[in-house]
Design a protein around this nucleic acid. Structure first.
Length: 637
DNA sequence: CTTAGGG
DNA sequence: CCCTAAG
C-alpha cells in the first residue's frame, strides 16, 4: 500500500456536487473561492507525482459520496463540521473531526499555543470498507475504498483525497460539540440574520456576496457592542472582550479561511507530502512508512512555533479552537508567553536521551522522529517529541549554543581542542579563565544543563582524570598561575574604577575588599559583584521615587554612578529583596543576618522594600503621570 | 531597547 | 547574573 495523499484544486467539483446535492451547483474555478469546502482528488503515482483523477474516477467518488450521504444526518456524532452552501443554509454535515483533530483544550492549557496537530485516522480505517462511516474518517478514506473497486487504476496507485479547503463558514470545535450545541441552543440566531435555522456560523453566510474589503471597512465602523455581536455571530459564543482591535481581528480571522493550503506549492518528496504556502507554513507530512505499516500514528500536520512561522498559527488556532478565543481574551489582559527556546531545547534533550541517539545532530534519514520538511519558503527540520502525553513536532535544535559566542569563546576553543590548558599568559585575563568559568561556558556552549554533547563529555573525562581537584581539571598551568585565581576573587569586590566614579566608599565596599578565602561561592561566577548596601538603598529609594518596574529610569536617575548595574540587575535585585523580606517577615528574629555571611540587609531596608512592594503594586495614575513627566524631563521618553 | 520572568 | 520572550 502506497502513500495516498494529495490535494488538487480542480477536482473539487465532483465531490462538491456530491455533497451539495440540493444545490446542484457545480463549482467553477472562480466559484471555489466562495465555497466553504473544496475537496481535491488526486492520485499519487508511484513516482510521487500527483495525477489528477479522471472523470470516471471522479464519478466513482461521487457515487460513493452520494451513497453515504444518506447516512450522514443520522450520525449522531458530535464534533461535526458544517457545510454551508452558497445560499447560506446548512445543507449537509460533514464529520471530519478525526481528520482535523486540532488543538484540544488540554493542549492549550499547556501553554503551547504554537503547535498544532492534525492527525490522520488510523490506517485500519483506510483499509476497511465496512468500517467506513461517512464523515467520521478522513475524506480520503472514501477514495481509498473507492480505489479498491476501481479497475481503472494501476495496481500501485491509489486515490487520494486529502485536503479540505475550508473557505468560509466552517465552524470547528475543539471540544467536539460545537455545531451540535449551537444548533440546539442557537444563541446567536438573531445575529445571523433572522433565520433561526441558519446556524449563523458566520455573518458571511448570511451575506455571501460581501467582499472582505467591505467587511473590513464595516468592522472598523462598528461599535464595540456591535463587534461583540458580530463576534457572537461568527463564533457562536459570547465575548466580553472590549478590545476593538482584538474583536475585529478575531472576526476577520473567523471569516478568513485559516487553513488555505495553496496547491501551487504542493510537492511530494519520497515520503512526504508537503503543502507549503506563501503565507502558511503549514506542513503536511504523512509518512509513507507509517501508512505502509499500518500504524495508527502517522505523522501529523504540524504548525511550527513562531520561530518558524508567524501569524498563521494564530489564525489557524483561533478558528478551530474555541478555547483559544478565551485565551485570547485573557491575553489581552496578560500576555502569554510562548514556549521558550530553552524549554524546547530541554524537551529536545530529554527526547534525545530517551532515544539514545548519540549521533551527530544532523538528523539521519532513518530516524522516524526527525523529518525534514519544506514549507515552500524554507526547509525546516523537525523532530517529534512527546509532551504532556501527546506527540508534538518541534523544530530541531541542536544542543549547541546557536547564538553569538561569548567573548571568551576562543579560550573555549582551546579547551575544546583537547588539552584544557590555558595558555599561561597572566596578562590576557580573558584567557585565564577559572575552571568554574570554563564549566560555566562549556555549559553554555552545550546549551543544556546536564552533561550532553561532546564538549561536555570531554570536560567530564578530564575531571575524572583528576580526582584531587574536585571541580577543576588537571590543568597544571592553571594552578601555577595565581593571578587567575586572584582575579576570580576580584570579581566579587568593587572594582576601583567604579569606586572612583561612584564615590561610594561605604561600608560594604570595604567589606567586599576584604580578602576572603576562595570559597565555592566566590568561584562561582565571573560577573558577580556583591551588592553594596548603598546600592540597595539607592535601589529602594529609586523604587520609591519612580515605582516598581521603572528599572531603566531608576538606573539612569539613581544609578548613573553605578555603571555596572543594568536595569535588569536592578530588577533582579529588587526581586531578591522582595524574596528576602517576605521570606523573613514571619520570623524576623534573625533579622538581617544571613547564613552565608554575605551582606546584611538592614531589616529597616527590608521593611521599606515590603512597604514599597505593596504600595507600588498599584501605582496611582497621578503618580504615573508624574513619573512620565519626570522621565521625559530627563529625556527618557 | 525595555520589561518580565524563568533559570 | 544570564537568557529570552514580548512589546
Amino acid at each position: 500500500m502506497g502513500t495516498m495523499v494529495g490535494s488538487v484544486e480542480d477536482y473539487g467539483e465532483m465531490f462538491q456536487d456530491a455533497v451539495d446535492q440540493t444545490s446542484g451547483a457545480s463549482l467553477s474555478s472562480s466559484n471555489q473561492i466562495e465555497n466553504p469546502v473544496v475537496y481535491k482528488l488526486v492520485r499519487v503515482a508511484q513516482d510521487g507525482r500527483l495525477v489528477p483523477a479522471t472523470d470516471e474516477e471522479m464519478l466513482e467518488v461521487k457515487d460513493l459520496v452520494e451513497n453515504n450521504e444518506n447516512d450522514m444526518s443520522l450520525v449522531p456524532d458530535p464534533g461535526q463540521y458544517e457545510y454551508i452552501t452558497d445560499e447560506g443554509s446548512p445543507s449537509q454535515f460533514l464529520q471530519l473531526d478525526s481528520f482535523f483533530q486540532l488543538e484540544t483544550a488540554e493542549a492549550y492549557t499547556e501553554n503551547l499555543n504554537s503547535r498544532l496537530e492534525v492527525c490522520p485516522p488510523p490506517l485500519e480505517l483506510l483499509q476497511s470498507k465496512e468500517e467506513l462511516v461517512y464523515g467520521s474518517q478522513m475524506p480520503f478514506t472514501l477514495l481509498d475504498t473507492n480505489y479498491h473497486s476501481s479497475n481503472e487504476l494501476p495496481g500501485d496507485e491509489e486515490f487520494v483525497l486529502s485536503e479540505v479547503l475550508l473557505q468560509e463558514p466552517v465552524c470547528f470545535s475543539s471540544d467536539g460539540c460545537g455545531i451540535d450545541q449551537s444548533m440546539d441552543v442557537s444563541p446567536y440566531s438573531n445575529a445571523a440574520g433572522g433565520n433561526p435555522k441558519a446556524p449563523a456560523l458566520s455573518t458571511t453566510a448570511s451575506s455571501p456576496g460581501a467582499s472582505r474589503d467591505t467587511e473590513e471597512i464595516c468592522l472598523g465602523n462598528l461599535s464595540i457592542k456591535a463587534l461583540q455581536d458580530t463576534f457572537r455571530a461568527t463564533f457562536g459564543r459570547e465575548t466580553t472582550c472590549k478590545d476593538k482591535l482584538w474583536l475585529e481581528r478575531k472576526i476577520k480571522m473567523g471569516r478568513i479561511n485559516p487553513c488555505v493550503i495553496p496547491t501551487t506549492s504542493l510537492t511530494v518528496d519520497d515520503t512526504k507530502l508537503i503543502l507549503g504556502g506563501q503565507d502558511s507554513d503549514m506542513v503536511v507530512a504523512f509518512s509513507k512508512d507509517t501508512f505502509d505499516e499500518g500504524r495508527a500514528s502517522p505523522d501529523c500536520i504540524k504548525r511550527h512555533p513562531n520561530d518558524f512561522g508567524d501569524s498563521p498559527v494564530e489564525a489557524f488556532v483561533d478558528h478551530y479552537s474555541g478555547n483559544e478565543d478565551f485565551e485570547g481574551e485573557y491575553r489581552s489582559a496578560k500576555r502569554v508567553r510562548k514556549a521558550t527556546r530553552r524549554y524546547i531545547e530541554e524537551i529536545s534533550k530529554v527526547d534525545d536521551e530517551n532515544q539514545q541517539s548519540k549521533e551527530s545532530p544532523i538528523p539521519s534519514k532513518d530516524e522516524r522522529s526527525i523529518s525534514t520538511v519544506s514549507s515552500g519558503r524554507r526547509v525546516v527540520v523537525t523532530r517529534m517529541v512527546s509532551l504532556g502525553g501527546s506527540i508534538i513536532q518541534v523544530p530541531y535544535v541542536s544542543h549547541v549554543r546557536r547564538s553569538r559566542p561569548r567573548e571568551n569563546i576562543m579560550a573555549l576553543g582551546e579547551f575544546n581542542s583537547g588539552l584544557w590548558e590555558v595558555k599561561g599568559n597572566p596578562e590576557e585575563s580573558d584567557l585565564n579563565l577559572s575552571q568554574s568559568q570554563l564549566n560555566n561556558d562549556v555549559k553554555r556552549v552545550s546549551g543544556v544543563k546536564s552533561v550532553s554533547g561532546p564538549v561536555q563529555k570531554k570536560l567530564v573525562a578530564h575531571c575524572v582524570l583528576d580526582p584531587q581537584m574536585q571541580i577543576t581539571t588537571n590543568d597544571q598551568s592553571y594552578k601555577d598561575h595565581s593571578k587567575p585565581k586572584l582575579r576570580e576573587v576580584d570579581e566579587d569586590i568593587m572594582e576601583p574604577e567604579y569606586m572612583d566614579s561612584s564615590g561610594d566608599s561605604s561600608d560594604d565596599s570595604t567589606y567586599n575588599r576584604v580578602d576572603r578565602p576562595i570559597t565555592q561561592s566566590a568561584m562561582r561566577r565571573k560577573h558577580h559583584r556583591a551588592w553594596s548596601l548603598s546600592e540597595v538603598k539607592n535601589l529602594v529609594e529609586g523604587v520609591s521615587k519612580y515605582g516598581v518596574g521603572k528599572w531603566s529610569v531608576i538606573k539612569k536617575l539613581s544609578y548613573s554612578s553605578f555603571p555596572h548595574r543594568s536595569p535588569v540587575d536592578l530588577k533582579d535585585k529588587w526581586r531578591n529583596l522582595l524574596k528576602a523580606c517576605f521570606a523573613r517577615a514571619p520570623l524576623n528574629k534573625m533579622g538581617s543576618l544571613r547564613k552565608y555571611g554575605s551582606m546584611a540587609i538592614p531589616s529597616q531596608v527590608l521593611s521599606q522594600v515590603k512597604e514599597l512592594s505593596q504600595k507600588k503594586s498599584h501605582v496611582s495614575p497621578a503618580r504615573k503621570a508624574r513619573m512620565v513627566k519626570a522621565s521625559s524631563r530627563h529625556g527618557f521618553l
